[in-house]
Structures are given as C-alpha cells and as structure tokens.
Design a protein around this nucleic acid. Structure first.
Length: 755
DNA sequence: CTCGGATGGGTTTTT
DNA sequence: CCCATCCGAG
C-alpha cells in the first residue's frame, strides 16, 4: 500500500525522515501512532533490515498494537518491538554473562520487592511504622532509576535517615542477589550501567540497533534515557515521539527534561510538530489549550482542528459528591436509553476514592459501568501463589516464592517451622528450599513438622521433574497435586471466581504453549536462552495489562486520570475539579509547582471527542469529614470561550465568607430542608456563578467568584471581609498568588455571571 | 489455622 | 470513611 498518500505534510515529513535524530512533538490526538507505524514501515521498505530496528513503548498493549499495525503494512519478522522492561529482560537473559548476571534470574514485581524490603527492614531491626516498606521501596526505586547503586548512594548519604536507607538498600540488593532475582528497576539499571561501563556490551548493542524509536519519550526516566541515548550514540538514528504536555509520571521518576532537551542532546536533530488534532471539537481544544498555556515547562504548541463545532464545554457546580454522581448517572441514563453508546462515555477522577459515589449512583440508575482498575489478574492472591509455584520450580533459589507456597495450601508447616527453617538457611548460607531438604538437621523441629516439610520437598521434586517444554501440563499437574481448586473453593466461600481465575491461568498457559516460538528478531540476538517456563514467567511478570479496557463493552468506563491517558471517548465527565483534589494537595506539597497536575487535567480534557463536562462540589466528605471545597484553579484557566457554566445546587443562604467545617452527616440537617431547585439547570441569568452563595449583604462579591483585576488579570475570590466602604476581598491569581484588595479602590469586574 | 477486633495509614502506578 | 495488616483468642 501507499504509505504516504493519506498523510498531512507534517506527518509525511516525520515518516520519510530516515537518517539522523528526529523529534516528533505529537499533540494530543494528532495521529502519532499512525506516524510511528508508517515510519517503521517506510524504513523497512527502503532497505533497512527489520533486525536493526528497535521500537520501544511503555505498555505491552501499545507494543502489541504497534506490532499488529506495522504487520499490516510490512513483514515484521526480525523487528524488536517491546517495552523498555521486556527489552532489557531479554537483553540480560542473552548477555547477562557479559554483565555479570545469571541469565536464569527471576523478575520481582512491585509487590515482591515491597515484601523483600519489608523483610530487610525487619531483619535490620528497624521499626516498620517509621520505616515504611512501601515508602522505602519507592525510594530505592527512584535511586535505581537514577542509576545509584547501594555503594554510590551510601557514599553521599550523610544524615541519619539517608544512612539507614543506604543500609536497607544494600541489604535489599543482597537479598535479591541471593534469590537470583531482579526487580523492575534492576532490569533497566543493569542495562543502563552496562552500556556505560562495558565496551563489549555497548558494541554489541550499537552494532545491532541502527534505528531506534522511543514512544512517549516525555515519560522516560533517567535509566531509560541512558539506555536510549547510549544505544543511539553511534548511528544517531533515534526517533523520539511524545508530548511534554502529557507528561504525568514525574512522581515516578519520569524526567520531563529528557524531551525538552532532546534538541540539545542530539544537535542537528529534525523537529516535527504535529499540531492538527483529529479527535476533539474546537470548543474542547480551545479550553484545553487555554489551560495548558499556564505551564512554563513546555514546548509552545498550538492545537487546531478542522472538526465541526460541538457543544460548549460544561462546568457544573453541585452541592455534594452524591449530587455530582447523580447528575452524571441521570444524564447518562437519559441520553443513552437502552444502553447503546455507553461504551463512548467515561468518567475520570484524580483519586480512586472518588469512584465510589459515581458507582453507587450509576448502580442506582441501572447504568452498566466498569471500573478500570490497577489491580490486575496477576495481582490476585490465588494467581500470585500459583505463579509463585512456577517461579520456585524455575528458580529454586527464589526464597520469596518458596516462602509464599511452603504452606499454601496449608500442609502443616506453621510460622514457627518456617522461622526455624529460615534461620537454618541463613546460618548455612543456603536457600529456603535447600533448608527444607535438610529439615532433619534443623534444631527444634518436631517429627510432625519434619514430615510435613518432607512432603513439601517431595511435591517440589515431583513438579521439578515434569517436562518444562510446555507450561500448561505443568500448571495442570501443579493444581492437581496441591489440591489447589479445593483450596480456592474453600477460601472463596461464596464467590467462585477464584477457581475461574485459576482456570484462566491454565488457558493463558495453553495459549502460550500454542504460540510459535519467538523468531530470532524478537530477541536481541538469536533466541533467548531459557526454557518455555522461564519465558512464560517473564511474560507474566511484565504483563499488567491483563485487565485491558474493554473499549467496546457498552458500559460507562470509570477511571483515574492517569489510566485515561492514550484513550478517547465521545463523552467525558471529569469529576472533583476542586482545589486539593486537582491539583492534588499532596502533589503540590511534593513538587512545589502545579504543572504536572495541570497536565493531568489537560490529558483528561483532551480525551473527549465531543462532549466534555467538568464538575465540582461545594462540600465533599473526605476521610469521614465533610469540608468546604473550592473550585479548581484550572476551571478559571480553561477560559471563557466555548465554556458554559451551570450551578445545580441550592443558592444556600446563610453562608458567610469563611469556610464552614462540618462533620459527618450533620451537614444536611444543618442546611435545612430546601431542595426545591436541586438538579434543575439554572439559566445563565440566574446563575450566581462558581461557588457563589446568596450575598449576605449588599456586597456583590462572594467567595469562589471569578473576577478580573485591572492589573493582575483573572482570579478567584477566596474570602470577603468587612462591609460597606471597608469591604475587602482576598483574591488568588494563577501564578501570582493571593492578594487582598479594598473593593472601594480596586476595579474588579465580575466575570462568572452568565459566562 | 482462622476469625474478629484493634490499629494505623490513605495520590497517581505504563513495568 | 475505608482498607490492609497485625495480633490474640478459640
């Protein structure tokens, strides 16, 4: 097929660029995936061997999609398309010897490393409340992303806390080493460091990958940046695609500067801007652009579209989270009778806690919905344990896996017995499974315990003897020998989805067995070593997308703003647009600027194709306490053009300027019975405006109102004090902070009336 | 081993 | 408020 005819000039430029660095700044909805797939196809059809091309994505889903879309255009055999992690895992299996890594390593996911960190913290004798394994694991993860080893970090850690983290990090590293395991960050760090320190390894990689493409470059962390940069260093054929305005993983170590400085890192690079948006209406685009212009850390970019006009972006103020949810549920029920088209509706929120009210309301209104959660198939207990068996079989040194399965299903090996075995293992410098083999020599074990452990060892030996060329028979045997189904049924007590999940894993294994072995190109060089079992486990550890969004299911999709990235829906509701939630209070405290939060809002808005509704509440209950909420600053930053505002709440008299802290349910009682106008749209003329209450005297200014100041521009009123000539208003301006004015002098224009 | 209450901690989470 | 985890009783 013709690879170019249906492309815009800018897209074509990116597709046909062959030699030299290329940066594609792809605005939201600008057809980026199309450009990448065409570009790879173009390279291949112009004589580049697929074997020499490396394409990196951030998710398995993206990698799969890219592969199939390229396959529709050219022969993809030999092409490497993978996530950074999968790519590094294969590289290390292949060339681990060059780098000093046993290629039979297990891969620990975040839950595994958290457990390992916990063990280490306890082992050192630190208190796990103060030294929270979660937090420390995060800290270690960040260190690894910055390519810090325990040694380099210990050298610069001077304070008490830093020194302890260094101790934990060191012990954690040793634990993983003893278990022959790598965590997610290790996969990247080892490859990155090896590329820096090992000439032979660097040579192998540079020789092979003459062309590399990195998608979502704005989300790369330090380690990934090094990997890409070092490999591309010789041939300089690196193509980075991404959008600084959609960088939302800074808190996880992504470094926005990677994309902002790309031109400096690769002088002479070509830059292509894709600014035409194929997704949204001009109204949505105008509001989103207006918002993102408040950011400084970006590459100026103007999105435009040829799409037809749509409805105005709606900003709706409601009384409570329940009203907010009800608004959506009732509107959706009204607009989609019979449920047809529901797949095109999504609800986004900043934190998972906000999903609950929406769920309740949708359920009450009988609207089918689905929560797109992080908890995936492989994180379920029954699956994790089953996989732990497989891991222990593949890698008997994996103590974490052995510990998990030693008494699951229960077989009479209690905590005390495990503790004794562990102590013995530590003293003898052997693994836990090896300690089990020598249970007879372990002090303090009674006859009964020794017998139970012996049964476990026998089980593992039997399983170990099963042919590992195929995974499914092994899994079946395992389920059989352990009585796994019966155990699951017992645990499930009522819901039997556990057994179903187990069956699902059997099918996954069967499917895996049926796949043709990866062709040579999938591996960095030749086919990776390791049997089917190890490859299966690798797939399992590096896959979290199993709960992929069923984009076709006729249901409303509920998800966090982070989960929304990369998706699109005709109708989008964004809820909880309130100060403290979006921007989130924690994010603000940590980063000291609100730009990533603004990008998050931008990402959410630009998911919408036609209809975008953003809501905020006056009162919201958080951790059992109902608090007064303020409209998000982002709602004023989206501007006034193409935006319509509604107030669907009582004009509740009695408020004064100060926030009313209220507790629990007392709020409703306090407010009194006055729900006459609830849930009825208020016409522009009546609408008192964002967050406005009925004025308590003649003063026209009210908290949450938007006003324009002659010199400072548009801001939100925070509080009104005094009366008559002495009336003062406190106003917050974006970027300028808060200021107080005497209304007698300041020329304030009220903006939000009928905006 | 399993159940229940007490206790503590609660942003987001591509791999 | 909602949960995951811990610990003691049966």
């Amino acid at each position: 097929m013709d690879l170019l005819s249906d492309l815009t000039p800018a897209q074509r430029e990116a597709v046909t660029h062959v030699e030299g660095p290329l940066l594609v700044l792809a605005g939201a909805g600008s057809g980026k995936t199309r450009v990448i797939t065409r570009r790879v196809a173009h390279l291949v059809s112009h004589g580049v061997r697929p074997y020499e091309v490396l394409a990196i994505t951030f998710t398995n889903k993206a990698a799969d999609e890219m592969r199939s879309r390229i396959a529709a255009l050219v022969d993809t055999r030999g092409l490497t398309i993978a996530t950074f992690h999968a790519f590094c895992a294969r590289v290390l299996r292949m060339h681990g010897d060059l780098v000093g890594i046993d290629p039979g390593f297990a891969i620990y996911d975040s839950a595994d490393s958290r457990r390992a960190v916990k063990q280490v913290v306890e082992g050192i004798g630190l208190d796990t409340t103060h030294w929270s394994p979660n937090r420390i694991a995060g800290r270690i993860s960040r260190l690894k992303n910055q390519l810090q080893t325990p040694e380099t970090f210990a050298a610069e850690a001077t304070d008490f806390s830093g020194k302890n983290v260094a101790r934990i990090y060191t012990a954690y590293r040793d634990l993983l080493l003893a278990n022959n395991a790598l965590d997610f960050d290790d996969l990247l760090m080892h490859v990155a460091r090896a590329l820096r320190e090992n000439e032979a390894f660097l040579g192998v990689m540079q020789d092979r990958y003459r062309f590399i493409l990195i998608d979502e470059y704005q989300d790369t962390n330090e380690a990934q940046y090094h990997i890409a940069g070092r490999i591309a260093d010789r041939h300089r054929n690196i193509c980075a695609t991404g959008d600084p305005d959609q960088s939302i993983y800074g808190w996880r170590g992504a470094n926005l500067n990677n994309i902002l400085d790309f031109e400096k890192d690769f002088p002479g690079c070509k830059v292509v801007r894709l600014e035409r948006n194929y997704r949204s209406t001009p109204q949505i685009l105008s509001a989103a652009s207006s918002l993102i212009r408040y950011n400084r850390k970006r590459k100026p970019k103007e999105l435009h579209t040829g799409n037809a006009d749509g409805p105005a972006v709606r900003v709706v103020e409601v009384e409570s989270a329940e009203d907010e949810a009800k608004l959506i549920a009732e509107e959706v029920a009204r607009d989609y009778p019979g449920g047809t088209g529901l797949a095109g509706v999504a609800v986004f929120y900043r934190v998972n806690a906000l999903s609950r009210a929406a769920e309740d309301a949708l359920m009450a209104a009988n609207v089918p919905y689905e929560i797109v959660r992080g908890t995936s198939f492989y994180e379920r207990q029954e699956i994790r344990t089953l996989v732990a068996y497989l891991r222990a079989i593949a890698n008997p040194a994996d103590d974490l896996a052995v510990e998990r399965i030693i008494n699951a299903p229960p077989r009479g090996i209690g905590d005390t017995t495990v503790k004794r075995l562990q102590a013995f293992a530590k003293a003898e410098h052997v693994g836990l499974l090896e300690a089990c083999r020598r249970a007879g020599k372990v002090d303090g074990l009674g006859q009964r315990a020794v017998a139970a452990v012996a049964r476990f060892v026998k089980l593992m030996d039997t399983l170990g003897a099963v042919d590992q060329a195929q995974v499914e028979p092994l899994v079946r045997r395992l389920i059989d020998l352990t009585g796994y189904d019966a155990w699951c049924r017992k645990l499930a007590a009522g819901e039997d989805d556990r057994v179903e999940n187990v069956n699902e894993l059997v099918s996954v294994a069967a499917q895996f067995d049926d796949e043709p072995p990866p062709d040579a190109g999938d591996a960095p060089a030749g086919t990776p070593p390791g049997d089917a079992l190890m490859q299966f486990l690798e797939r399992v550890s590096l896959t979290s997308d199993q709960d992929a969004v069923h984009e076709t299911a006729e249901r409303v999709h509920l998800m966090t703003l982070h989960a929304a990235k990369g998706l699109e829906f005709p109708t989008v509701y964004m809820i909880g647009l309130e100060e403290g939630l979006l921007p989130h209070i924690m994010a603000e405290e940590q980063d000291r600027d609100d730009e990533e939060e603004r990008r998050l809002c931008f990402v959410g808005m630009t998911r919408a194709k036609r209809k975008l509704t953003m809501t905020f509440t006056r009162y919201r209950m958080h951790r059992g306490v109902t608090g007064r909420q303020m409209a998000s600053r982002f709602l004023q930053e989206i501007g006034l053009t193409g935006v319509e505002r509604q107030v669907l709440a009582d004009a509740d008299g009695g408020h004064d300027a100060a926030p009313h802290p209220r507790v629990g349910r007392t709020f409703n009682r306090w407010r009194g019975p006055s729900s006459g106008r609830r849930h009825k749209p208020v016409s522009a003329d009546e609408a008192p405006g964002i967050g406005a209450a009925v004025p308590h005297d003649d003063c026209p200014y009210r908290p949450d109102q938007w006003v324009r100041h002659q010199t400072y521009g548009v801001g939100t009123i925070l509080a009104v004090s005094g009366s008559g000539e002495d009336t003062k208003v406190r106003i917050r301006f974006p970027h300028l902070g808060e200021k107080t004015f005497a209304v007698r002098f300041a020329k304030l224009e009220i903006l939000d009336k009928g905006a």
